[in-house]
C-alpha cells in the first residue's frame, strides 16, 4: 500500500470514528463507504457500515449487504449482526439458523437466541435459555430480562394452565 493511500485510510478512520462516537449514523455511513472505496477489504469499515444501517433501522439494506456474495469475506464474522437483522425483519427461522451456525455462542448471541425462540413460540426452550442467561450475567437490564421471563411464563401458562410454572414475586 502506498504511503498516500495509507494516510488517506487513517484519515478516513479518524473521521469515521468521530461520527461513530457522536452517533451521527448518516455521516458515519458515508465515511465507512469512503474507506471501502479506497480499500474494499477493510473489515472494520464494513462492520461499521452494517451497524449504521441497523441504527438507522434500515434492516433491509443491512441484510442485502451482508448476504451479497461479493461480501462473503467481509461479512464472515458478523453472525450476531446478521441474525439480529433477520430477527428485526421478522424472519425468526432464518435468524435462528444464523445464530446456530456461529462458531461460538457469545452472550450477545444467547440474548438474541432467547428473543428468537420467543418469536417462534418455543417458550420452554426460551425459558431454559433465559434461566441460563440470568445465572451468568450481571448488567443493568436485569429488570427487563425478568419482564421477558414473565412474558415467557405467561405464554406457557396460556398454553398449559395446569402446568407447574415458576412463580414470580
Amino acid at each position: 500500500m502506498s504511503a498516500n493511500k495509507e494516510s488517506n485510510l487513517v484519515q478516513g478512520y479518524i473521521e469515521l470514528n468521530k461520527f461513530c462516537q457522536s452517533g451521527d449514523y448518516d455521516r458515519a455511513l458515508k465515511a465507512a463507504g469512503k474507506i471501502l472505496q479506497i480499500a474494499p477489504t477493510e473489515q472494520k469499515a464494513f462492520h461499521c457500515k452494517i451497524i449504521c444501517f441497523i441504527q438507522l433501522h434500515n434492516f433491509k439494506e443491512a441484510l442485502a449487504v451482508l448476504s451479497n456474495p461479493k461480501n462473503v469475506a467481509l461479512a464472515g464474522d458478523l453472525h450476531f449482526e446478521k441474525a439480529y437483522v433477520q430477527y428485526r425483519l421478522n424472519c425468526p427461522k432464518d435468524a435462528l439458523q444464523t445464530v446456530d451456525n456461529a462458531p461460538e455462542m457469545t452472550l450477545a448471541l444467547k440474548e438474541l437466541r432467547a428473543q428468537i425462540l420467543y418469536r417462534l413460540e418455543q417458550y420452554q426452550d426460551c425459558y431454559n435459555l433465559y434461566r441460563d442467561i440470568v445465572k451468568n450475567t450481571t448488567d443493568e437490564y436485569e429488570d427487563e430480562r425478568k419482564a421477558n421471563m414473565s412474558a415467557v411464563v405467561a405464554n406457557l401458562a396460556a398454553l398449559n394452565p395446569s402446568a407447574d410454572l415458576p412463580q414470580f414475586e
Partner: peptide, 10 residues
C-alpha cells in the same frame, strides 16, 4: 405481556 429487545444493546 411486555417483551423487551435486549439484544439491541449488543
Amino acid at each position: 405481556p411486555l417483551f423487551f429487545d435486549l439484544a439491541c444493546n449488543f
